[in-house]
């Protein structure tokens, strides 16, 4: 029997989210659902970054106060690097969504549908 500790629960949530999103992005036929799945996958990874940067009891801002020992500081401050990655990725995610939305709108104008099963001009 697999024993799950409370600390592992957020990671399991991320794994489930990522698995559902990769499945949906590959096998759903609606282009808009594919796009949503990819955006949610980015969010799952963002969550993973935040979880990894989190420290229990991390209450002080990530600037070393004068006189504090660096190892004690590392225990009491949340890792700011993870937040930097997430902020960058959120901005990039906006660009992704904008790009895909433009393409989906053009697909709808040309084909009158966004179901990939009905769009068969090219043979792959």
């Amino acid at each position: 029997m697999v024993i799950v500790t409370a600390g592992q629960l957020p990671y399991i949530l991320v794994a489930i989210m990522a698995a559902i999103c990769i499945y949906a992005a590959l096998f759903k036929s609606n282009l808009f659902k594919k796009m949503l799945a990819m955006f949610l996958l980015t969010d799952a990874v963002n969550l993973l970054f935040i979880i990894q940067g989190y420290r229990i009891g991390g209450a002080i801002p990530p600037i070393i106060p004068p006189g504090m020992d660096p190892s004690e500081f590392a225990l009491r401050a949340v890792d700011p690097l993870a937040h930097y990655f997430v902020v960058t990725a959120v901005v990039i995610g906006l660009a992704e969504v904008a790009t895909l939305t433009v393409l989906i709108i053009y697909t709808y104008r040309h084909y009158g549908t966004i179901e990939t099963k009905k769009i068969k001009e090219l043979r792959g």
């Binding site: 990769i22 992005a25 590959l26 282009l31 594919k34 796009m35 990819m38 996958l41 992704e96 790009t99 895909l100 393409l103 989906i104 053009y106 697909t107 040309h110 084909y111 769009i119 001009e121 090219l122």
Partner: peptide, 15 residues
């Protein structure tokens, strides 16, 4: 067809 190629490329590259 070029829009279709674009959306196909877009979905898989972003994935």
């Amino acid at each position: 067809a070029s829009v279709e190629a674009g959306i196909k490329y877009g979905i898989y590259d972003i994935l």
